[in-house]
Design a protein around this nucleic acid. Structure first.
Lengths: 258, 258
DNA sequence: TAGTGGTCTAGACCACAAA
DNA sequence: TTGTGGTCTAGACCACTAT
């Protein structure tokens, strides 16, 4: 990595710095390699540490760097492709989901948060809230909450297990019994809330891709799920390309680099 | 909005501040309303401006605030749902895309960038690069580059227009003639490159959702497109829920607020 | 020209992980 | 204990918008 001093440029220093570092990552570093520490890098480029950090933040957002407090900054492996496509008529929690490495965590019965009510398109209601996480390549890539109105599945009240993974599994199993007419789905950027952040081994506010799914039965929203994927390490894939594993080492921003 | 001073808390100040502000946005502000300026807010909460800005950045990332240099910080409208679902066998650039407000900008013939070659799964090749933008509700929400290897569609060399929207349209029209066996798609987080940023009216490095699509003909990747959506203002939707417009005012992080 | 957000600095201290 | 990244401060100046 050069020691090029940043000259007067028309673009912000941190952006120029990002480009210089991105170039260096491509040509001079291997995946997993540790970069010099921030103070060292800042000195080397003749900028304040805060400015250097702004550049690193960009690269981390793009999934090219991984920073861990107390450890250091390393070159991140390519983002892992996570298949989020689903057959139109399948509830979560079936065998296929087991294959995708979803692990039930817990389930509680409680009043639905206001935002969930809007998604459900109903008035106030009690919902079974199933919490589960998804693990790929030994890493927790997503945390999901599935909200099932008590009214949608009366059979749920017969479940024995008071809480914990056992109950979560029971609830999901019960869902399988229902028909499913369809689902619709949305993806947007969000920031990890404290509990999700902990589950995903990130700091609160970390960027996440939020996948919201509404499960429709008989023209009504019978359940809603909100899945939170680590944006730094995941690429959400749809369709059969699931694990084609295109060997792309380059954030999306570099896809079109000349 | 209260004038509550931040006390010693176990969580970072900027995160606590984010939560306080988010609460205030929900209860005391209307969409479009202008917040006090950053220096004023920082003073009011007794923090440095940089810390206040960290909180604002979070909220902007979540699509709840909009900041414009020289103007101020305003409460953002709910994210607009943008339908990115596509029939399995349709090329971009057809009538449906016109309805979705795609506007061809330009088209040039040039060697493909390395990253595109990896997506195309071929060796070095000349590609027709179509640039177009998508406009919804009067706002440019996405910029897309479509890469078509010259070899995929020999007929393209017969096109008259040397460049500009006319040529772009011609190339897209020519694609319609081809069959299309399928496509696969991925969504990931990226940061806007300088040219996209300009097109999207954002600063370089702004967070974007990158939708990568590979068009498959006869088992081979015949073309690739990389679409860059504004992450702050867009929610990507799949399936029939396209414009259901769930009245959700709340970033995804708040979807599960107790 | 005045006022806004955007960039940048040079420090300080804290939280965490590994030795 | 040492070294790392994470947080925070109190300034300064710049780029842009509206008046």
């Amino acid at each position: 990595m050069g020691t090029t001093r940043l000259e007067t440029v028309p673009e912000p220093k941190y952006w120029h710095l990002r480009n210089v570092l991105a170039e260096a990552l491509d040509t001079e570093f291997a995946v997993g390699e540790i970069l010099p520490n921030e103070r060292e890098l800042a000195a080397r480029f003749g900028v304040a540490r805060a400015t250097l950090r702004q550049a690193l933040e960009q690269l981390e957002l793009e999934g090219r760097l991984q920073r861990r407090r107390g450890v250091g900054t390393t070159v991140a492996p390519p983002r892992v492709g996570v298949d989020v496509s689903t057959p139109r008529h399948e509830w979560p929690g079936d065998d296929q989901d087991d294959a995708a490495s979803w692990r039930p965590r817990d389930c509680v019965l409680a009043p639905a948060p206001a935002a969930v009510l809007r998604l459900l398109e109903t008035g106030p209601a009690e919902v079974h809230t199933v919490r589960r996480v998804r693990i790929t390549h030994g890493q927790t890539v997503a945390a999901e909450l599935i909200y099932v109105p008590d009214a949608s599945v009366p059979e749920l009240s017969a479940i024995d297990a008071p809480s914990g993974p056992a109950r979560a599994r029971s609830v999901l199993r019960e869902l399988q019994r229902l028909g499913l007419d369809g689902q619709d789905r949305a993806v947007e950027l969000g920031s990890a809330r404290a509990d999700d952040a902990k589950e995903l081994d990130r700091l609160p506010g970390a960027p996440v891709l939020v996948v919201t799914t509404r499960y429709v039965v008989a023209g009504r929203v019978a359940a809603v799920s909100v899945a939170t994927y680590r944006a730094d390490t995941c690429r959400l894939t749809f369709g059969d390309s699931g694990d084609l594993e295109i060997s792309d080492r380059d954030g999306p921003q570099e896809r079109r680099a000349s």
